[in-house]
Structure formats: C-alpha cells, structure tokens
Nucleic acid binder design. Structure first.
Lengths: 132, 132
DNA sequence: CCTTGACCTAGAGTGAACTCTAGACCTTAG
DNA sequence: CTAAGGTCTAGAGTTCACTCTAGGTCAAGG
C-alpha cells in the first residue's frame, strides 16, 4: 500500500500560492521576474505556472528575509547561488552571515529605540499625574 | 557674573545641523515642509534658517522614530501634538504606545528571523564539513 | 460548446522618503 | 567691494518594492 511515492508534493496555482504565502499574485509574478526562485517554475501546456511545496517553503524563507529588511537584490543573489547548486556554500554562508550581522544591529537599534519610547511615555504619564 | 542666561543655546545653520544629525540639508528642508518640527524655525533677516540645540535634540528623537519604522506622517502627527502645547499628553501617550507595540512586534519578528538565518548558516557549515 | 473566473504578458502607475536641479540670494573673509 | 561658498524656493527626478491595467488566453463546471 502507498507504493507510489513517499513524499506527496502537492501542486498549486499562482492564486493558491498567493493565498498561502500572503503575497499577491502580481508580486509572485514579479518575484519570478526578479529571479527570486531557485529554479525555473514549470508551466502547464497552456503556459500557466505550476508551483510545488518547495516553492511554498522557499517563499516562507523569502518572507523572513524580506521582513528583516533584506533588499530584493540580495534575495536574488541568494536565489542565484541556490540555483547554481552545491559547491558555493561559502558564498551562501557569507551572504547569510552578513545579513545576520545586519539583523543583530537592527535588533540592538530597536531595543534602544524602545527605551527612548518608554522614557517618553513615562515622562508624559508623570506630566499628566502631576496635574491631578 | 554670567547673569545673561543659565542655558547657552548654540545656534546652527542648516549645513551644521545636517552634519550633526546625519540628515542631508535637502532632507532637513523637506522635514520642515512636512511639519516635522514642533515649532517654527526662526530665520535671519535674509531668510536663512537658524536652528537651536532644541532642534538637535528633536532630530535625535526623530531619528529614533524613523529607525524604528515610524512613517513620516506619524512623526508629523506627533510634532503637531507637541507644537500644540501641554494638554494633549493622552494623545501623545496613545501615539507612543501604539509605536511601542509595533516595536515589540518588530523585535520579536527579527529574533525569529535571526533563528532561521542561524539555522541556514549551520546547515551550510555542516554541508561543507561533510565534504572534507 | 460555452461561459466564467483565474491566468498570461508587457508595460505603466503608485506611494514613501528622499534627492537633486536651476536660478536667485545671503554672508563673510580678504 | 568682491568673490566664494552656503542657503533659498519651487518643483522635478530617483529608488524601491510593489500594484495595477489592458488586452488577451486557459481551464473547469454545466
């Protein structure tokens, strides 16, 4: 029983993938044009895109990268490395480590900002309280 | 001695303020046009802007807000509240608390991203190591 | 078959936040 | 007084990351 395949890859239309990934259909097509997929997207005979679960996972990663302010150009560079296949791990590590450093800096910056904001809020609260 | 004033406010030209704040001269003029200063900037008889240390401190705050992704429109709203003077502390608190929540969300998001990136780096390191 | 809704491409348009240009004016050191 | 360099305004231009339009094509239900 269940002899066909161990991993059942589901396929998705671009509309389904949009619903799953939270990106718009327009954006997905634009992402493809920007080279943000690590392999060519197969098509139906009629020319419509067929995405696999691989694409779903890949977009989850891209969403992380974008949410941490990686420029699209850098995501494209990373996609290019993955597309090129094994052997360029050093480049991928370099790219990711550079981004990790940016991420550390962003987090530190935001924590400092939060302190400033909290001080402001405290200050206004006290100003209000002292006018009882 | 020193009878004139207890606080010696230094004045700055727009170029000096740009050097201090890290913003460009163009951006400072644009900020003023967007209503991002809590009071009118005085001018020389010839029409050139005169900034005080107050402006330096204000821009330090704006830089914090901008670095934590507050839209210019929100900074303008905050400036408007400060410009209006005492009495609207509740509004200022609401604005800042809303931003603090956004900040908390951003920080959480970035920490999650950092985990993903670190996992990726570890994965590539192991891939490289296993090819000794 | 036929309709209807999703999909296709190429390219134009949008919004945010700057960034720069042109041509005139101001300020200050010599 | 003059020259050099900073500043002025109004408005155009840029970059990024989408977002939408027009004019078609495709696929699935009835």
């Amino acid at each position: 029983m269940m002899a066909e395949a161990t991993i059942a890859e589901r396929t998705h239309t671009i509309g389904e993938l949009a619903a799953i990934s939270g990106l718009s259909v327009h954006t997905l097509r634009w992402y493809e044009a920007q080279g943000l997929f690590p392999r060519d997207i197969p098509r139906t005979p009629g020319g419509q895109r067929i995405f696999g679960d691989e694409a779903v996972r890949w977009l989850a990663l891209l969403n992380r990268l974008r949410d941490s302010a990686m420029p699209v150009a850098d995501m494209a560079e990373y996609s290019r490395l993955v597309r090129a296949g094994e052997g360029n791990e050093a480049d991928r590590i370099a790219l990711m480590e550079s981004h990790a450093r940016s991420l550390d800096a962003q987090i530190e910056e935001l924590i400092a900002c939060r302190e400033v904001i909290r001080d402001k809020i405290d200050f206004y609260r006290r100003a209000v309280a002292s006018r009882t």
